[in-house]
Design a protein around this nucleic acid. Sequence first.
DNA 1: AAGTTATGTAACTGTCAAGTTACGCTTTCA
DNA 2: TGAAAGCGTAACTTGACAGTTACATAACTT
Lengths: 102, 102
Amino acid sequence: MNALTALSDPTRLRIVELLAEDERTAGEIASHFPTSRPGISRHLRVLREQGLVQARGEGRRRIYSLDPEPLAQLDAWLARYRGFWANRLDALETEIRRRRRH
Amino acid sequence: MNALTALSDPTRLRIVELLAEDERTAGEIASHFPTSRPGISRHLRVLREQGLVQARGEGRRRIYSLDPEPLAQLDAWLARYRGFWANRLDALETEIRRRRRH
DNA sequence: AAGTTATGTAACTGTCAAGTTACGCTTTCA
DNA sequence: TGAAAGCGTAACTTGACAGTTACATAACTT
């Protein structure tokens, strides 16, 4: 559940939200925060290491995009406990999900 | 998204999993970890403060149980991005969810 | 070629949180 | 009633991490 540790920082959480909208360069991302650019660079590194984002180089800039895999994992983890706050519609969701697992 | 910070610690994550099975006393919980009992006590405090667990006193012991609310919130947050790893069945889920919001 | 832009890394600092031991309080039991 | 059981809090230590400034590198631009 590495997504949890990566997302526990509010800045990184926000970065993920930004990248969910659209991919962005490191600079664009940094411009959304009061934090210095190197600081953001390190956050991006953490997100990369945890597999939450991917970076591809394009000329002198690096374009970051979201990699949903860890989020999907987190979602799967949560699904196990979804019964706790379930109502009928949620039960249906769970059923769908269970069935898809084949 | 306070669940994220609370669950970023692996011990606390495990505690939540334990309490998802069944409610337990502080001592029972602590017995599952190498950490000292006071250490666990502090983790429980964090979980309490973030609303993830509830404690009720029963004689000289405290019985902890899971409060799913923050997990439900986290689930709702994730739902916004579920499209990223979606297939058709997931799209149906989203639709259900959206509709329930009334 | 020289300067500027885009980005990452290095080294340092300060804060916070998780761990420990020692202690205190309340409840049970012999 | 005194001892033990069950928990929590206090005070301290230590390690991790987010933030900063300074520097390095690579790629456009003129």
